[in-house]
Every structure is written in C-alpha cells, then in structure tokens.
Nucleic acid binder design. Structure first.
Lengths: 237, 237
DNA sequence: TTAATAAGTGTACTTTTGACAATTATTATG
DNA sequence: CATAATAATTGTCAAAAGTACACTTATTAA
C-alpha cells in the first residue's frame, strides 16, 4: 500500500494551544484569564487559547495567540504538557498543548489588550475554569515551583530592576512559604547572578532598598544549570 | 455564528505518538529502535510510533503502541514533549507527542516482539534516525538526566533485585561519568529506599554482591519529592 | 597456599545549610 | 529638633552534607 494511503486511514484531530500566564505584581503570584467569547460556556473564565494553523510551528502558534489576545511579545513561554482526553472538549475532540508564560504585571499592564476581558487573578483565589483548564493550571504551578527551585527562572517575573526583598516576595509567593531573609539573600548572592546598582527604590520603606539587575551573560550560561534557590524543596510535588 | 461552525473553520492535523525507550543491561544505557516498515525511508531506524485513535487518551495510545510493537506492558512511560514543526514529517503535517519509557533489558528481552525488527542501540552509538527522532532522543536523554538527579526514577531501569554496584553503573551510564563508590553508596543508603536481601549475586565478582530491592511504600512517597542523587549536576543541561 | 578480583566500609576536611537578632538609614511625628 | 517607627542590611555558630581518599574482606581459580 502506498504510504499516503496509510496516512489517509488515520483520523485527524483538532489541535489547540492554551497558555497559562503567570504574573507577579510585587505582592502576589497571579494568572491572566479571559472570559470566553463564544456562546457555549459564555462567561466562563478560560486560559488564553487558540488553534494551530497549518504552517506554523507550535512555538510560533503560542506566540501568535498570546500576541493576538494580549498584545504581548518577547515573553518567556515554555511548553508544559499536552492534554488529550477524548472528553476534554465536549464540542469536538481536541488535543491541547499547554504553554506557560512568565511576565511582570506592571511592565506589561498597559500593553494588555482589554478587548477580550483579560483579567488577573490571584493563584490562591481562582474562578472555575473551562474544560480541563484547572488541571493545566495546577500542573503549571507545579512546574513553575519545580523549575524555579533549580533554574534562575524567577527573574522573568520581575521588572528589569528589582530589589532583594521583591525577589524574596516572589519566591515566597511561588512556594507559599516564608523564608529567612538572611539565608535567602546569602543564597541569591552566592549565585553571582545579580549586579548591584547605585540607585535605591524608596516608597516601600523609609530606608529604601538597593536595586539590582541580572548579569545577563551569567544568566544565559546558568539558565540551564542546576542551582538550588529553594532550601526546602519538600514542598514541591 | 454557531460554535460548531467556528470549529469547522479550523484545520485538523494528524497526531502521532513516539516513544523513546531506554533500557539498561547492567553495562550500558540503551535505546530500543525499530526499522521502519513502510516504503518511504524504508530501512531507516525509527522510534516506536503510531497514531492517536479517536477514543483513547494520550497515555492509553502510547501504552497501546508500545504493546503492539514490543509486547511490553506496565512500563514507566512519561510524556516528554510535543514536536510540531510543519516540516517535520515530509508526507503530511503531523504533530507528534513524544513519550519516554524506562525498562530493564534482560527482564523484558524475551517479551519483545521481533516482528518489527526491534533492536537495542547504545546511546553512545546511535544510527541515523527518521524525521526529527534524533532531536527527540536528545531531549529524552536530557530529561532522563534531569529527572534521575532528583527523583528515584533510575530503579525503573533495573531488575527487581539488584546490587549497589549495578545501580552505580546505571547512574554512571546515565551521566557518562565515574563516581566514587564510597560516596555513592552512602548517598543511596541515606535515602533509605533500599532493602538489603539475604542473597548475594555472584558471577560478576568472586566475593559476590548483596542484592537489594526497593522499599515500595517509601518509593511511592518519595517519587515526587526532590532527592539529590547526583552530586555534580553541572553535567546536566 | 597464594594470587586475583570486585565488594564493602571509615575518616578527616571543607562547604553548605539553618537557626537566630542587632544595627542602619530614612521618614514621620510630637 | 529629638524620637519613634519602619523596613533594609548584615554576621555567627552549630549541624549537616559533600568531597577526597585507601584499606580490608570474601571468594574463586591457579
């Protein structure tokens, strides 16, 4: 039998992409959700999603969808997992490729399109979500905790210049725990990933906290190496 | 517009599943490959693959395909990544979901069907592979190293009863490094995952080495927690 | 009996972690 | 102007973990 005939025997399937978009506002870890526009499940909150087109890669598709729905570009976007339960989408069988993204809320706030009713939710207080999107979110949180424990990924959620207390708040938000600030700062500093700037950030305290930025050279080389940002990773799944 | 109409506008896509099957024979880390049977790229070595059927989950599909091609069941099988480059399959656009599996070579040797020309290859000496399968394999090795460093996943590659030197050989094969046997055994023992048996395994040495088995209760609880099996994880990507 | 082989085990040193509290810079208030 | 209030910054000591390193043991074959 000719090979094309073999392919023709197989069934095709809809392929969707959904993005779990994490944001950090300095206080809480948040998730960007949209209100579903179409009639079925109208007004249900949903992840940012769209369909795969014939001539794009998966990465291109998720970048495109994120841009169409939020106006965001150059976002840290990483493939998470494929969800393919035959019943997951009640309309038609759809395989969905979940991506997770990390952005800084204030940096991008103005650029987020409001056409689609996009809204930030605290990850500790999420609404009911469409289909299996809650499952996707749970897995994404797990993965974020996993990755952030060993890779310098957390910085993606902060503005370009940030303070040590901000960074600690972020890590505390990710893991939902308190950390000792002396031990935390020692650990962060030992990575030599941060460059101390002359400026201080006031407002949050009377003394003001020094701003830091990433050493980008070092960041690139260390991105894929194993650090150990969290001291008690038993919290993790 | 009705929601079904919206779906109908989208293009469907072939969905395949490919499994990277790792095996360990006590010496080397190996990969199970098959010779492609169909005419295009005939005689090219390929991962174990097949198509997603309409009414099965992804996990079911990969279990089924693995069984059809090898006769193996109850194998550790974990989703790795989705590959979706529009050009990856020259016949028709196909999105492929890659899984990786861990099995013990001698345990399963007899059960592997030879209908499809399945053959083990050392991971240090792989042939040219079909499509983007080499990329899949590289990612799988990376993931295996990553996981095995922090999770007690390596045991899946060993027989039920094994010796400490065997376990050390496995870790050395996974990371391609030598480890100090005193430090290795101390680290492994500190996890309290192993139960020492009365029997010894002779043959490999004149003294013989004690056999151990996993403490399954503890294994289940620790599976998802972070250990640290490897001391110098800089090797990892 | 001896030689050969791989298994099994201990110690001292260094590094990292974890628990803990006092000092400093600044602003607001009386 | 002195003082109180606030959050930032910094250090020490003990415990645990990691690292480097070598001899003894059980067994078999010569």
């Amino acid at each position: 039998m000719h090979i094309l005939e073999l392919y023709k025997q197989e069934t095709k399937c809809f392929v969707a992409l959904d993005s779990i978009i994490f944001g950090f506002d300095g206080e809480e870890l948040k998730l960007l959700l949209v209100k579903r526009g179409v009639e079925t499940d109208k007004d249900t909150w949903s992840l940012m999603g769209g369909w795969l087109r014939p001539n794009e890669t998966l990465q291109q598709a998720s970048d495109r969808i994120l841009f169409e729905l939020t106006g965001l570009t150059d976002v840290y976007l990483e493939q998470l997992h494929v969800f393919g339960d035959p019943e997951r989408d009640p309309i038609e069988r759809t395989v969905s490729i979940a991506y997770f993204a990390l952005i800084n809320v204030p940096d991008y706030e103005t650029r987020i399109s409001h056409t689609y009713d996009a809204q930030w939710f605290s990850i500790t207080d999420l609404p009911e979500l469409l289909f299996d999107h809650s499952e996707m979110v749970n897995l994404a949180i797990e993965r974020l905790r996993y990755k952030a424990a060993f890779h310098p990924i957390g910085f993606e959620l902060l503005p370009e210049k940030f303070t040590i207390p901000q960074l600690q708040n972020l890590y505390q938000a990710i893991y939902g725990t308190d950390m000792d600030k002396r031990n935390f700062s020692r650990k962060i500093m030992s990575t030599k990933l941060l460059i101390k700037l002359k400026e201080k950030q006031k407002g949050n305290s009377k003394k003001g906290a020094y701003l830091y930025k990433i050493d980008n050279e070092r960041y690139k080389t260390m991105m894929h190496s194993f650090l150990n940002f969290v001291t008690n990773p038993e919290v993790l799944v």
